[in-house]
Amino acid sequence: MTQARVEPVQPPYAEDIQAAFTRIMPPGVEPLKLFTSMAHNPRVLQRFFAGGLLDHGSISLADRELLILRTTARCDAEYEWGVHAAFYTAKTGFSQAQLADTCRATPDIELWRPEQLALLALADSLHDRSTVDDVLWGRLREHFSDEQLIECLSLVGFYHTVSFLLNGLQVQREEYAPRFPAR
């Protein structure tokens, strides 16, 4: 295991940083190492929190998490994949087979509904080509509104940023977060 390039800040946190952690973290849960590492630059941390998409948006929790899991798996960001698997798998209803499938090169079409397969293809397309072709866009439009598609595109982009931060800083995995399954 590599060592973190930027060690997380330790409590007590500056008042504004503590307030930000209190807003974003569930009660009783310590701030994530990603956040405490980013706290070395409070301006970036605050902008990061302001740009997050973990609120109730225009797409379902399961659709949001599917995009996040696939994007972070494709970016090899095991930290973020594991945090989302730990916090949200029970809430999404994803099976262990589906969770593992988010990390496979080619999704198993038997595990997903058509709209979920379109979301997986969206994450892959943006990761591989930074765009969406007309055929895939047509598939997505069968299931999602313009408002929802803008959110989907934004989620994939935001979690590329999260992955870049995690991988670049070499943030160490949270102890409770699962690792990637065997691929």
Rank of each mutant, 00 (worst) to 15 (best):
M1H: 11
P8V: 08
Q10W: 02
A14W: 05
A14T: 07
D16H: 15
I17Q: 04
A19W: 12
T22D: 15
P27L: 11
G28H: 11
G28T: 11
V29R: 15
P31E: 13
P31T: 12
K33A: 15
L34E: 09
F35H: 14
F35L: 15
T36F: 05
M38G: 02
A39R: 13
A39Q: 08
A39P: 05
N41Y: 13
N41C: 14
P42I: 12
P42N: 08
V44I: 14
L45T: 12
L45N: 09
L45A: 12
Q46G: 01
R47A: 15
G51A: 15
L53E: 03
L54Q: 14
L54G: 15
D55Y: 14
S58E: 12
I59S: 00
S60W: 06
S60M: 09
A62E: 09
E65I: 03
E65R: 00
E65A: 01
E65L: 05
L66Q: 06
I68Q: 07
L69W: 10
T72V: 10
R74K: 14
R74L: 15
D76M: 06
D76I: 11
D76Q: 14
A77K: 07
A77N: 14
A77S: 15
Y79I: 03
W81Y: 09
W81R: 09
G82T: 10
G82Q: 08
V83H: 06
H84V: 00
A86F: 13
Y88S: 08
A90R: 15
T92M: 05
G93V: 06
A97C: 05
L99W: 01
A100D: 10
A100K: 07
C103P: 04
C103H: 01
A105I: 00
T106P: 01
T106S: 08
P107A: 13
D108T: 09
I109E: 15
E110P: 00
E110M: 05
L111M: 05
L111C: 00
W112G: 02
R113S: 11
P114A: 01
L117Y: 10
A118V: 05
L120N: 04
A121L: 07
L122G: 00
A123M: 05
H127F: 07
R129H: 15
S130H: 14
S130T: 10
T131E: 12
V132F: 08
D133T: 10
D134M: 12
V135F: 11
L136M: 09
R139I: 01
R139G: 02
R139W: 06
R139V: 02
L140M: 08
R141S: 13
E142I: 09
E142N: 14
E142R: 15
H143S: 07
F144V: 03
L149Q: 08
E151L: 13
C152D: 07
L153P: 00
S154C: 07
L155H: 00
L155D: 01
G157F: 05
Y159H: 05
H160K: 06
T161Y: 14
V162L: 01
V162S: 04
S163F: 06
L166E: 09
L166M: 11
L166G: 04
N167A: 12
N167K: 12
N167R: 14
L169N: 13
L169H: 04
L169I: 04
Q170V: 08
V171L: 00
Q172W: 06
R173Q: 12
Y176Q: 11
A177V: 03
P178K: 01
R179I: 05
F180T: 06
P181S: 05
P181T: 02
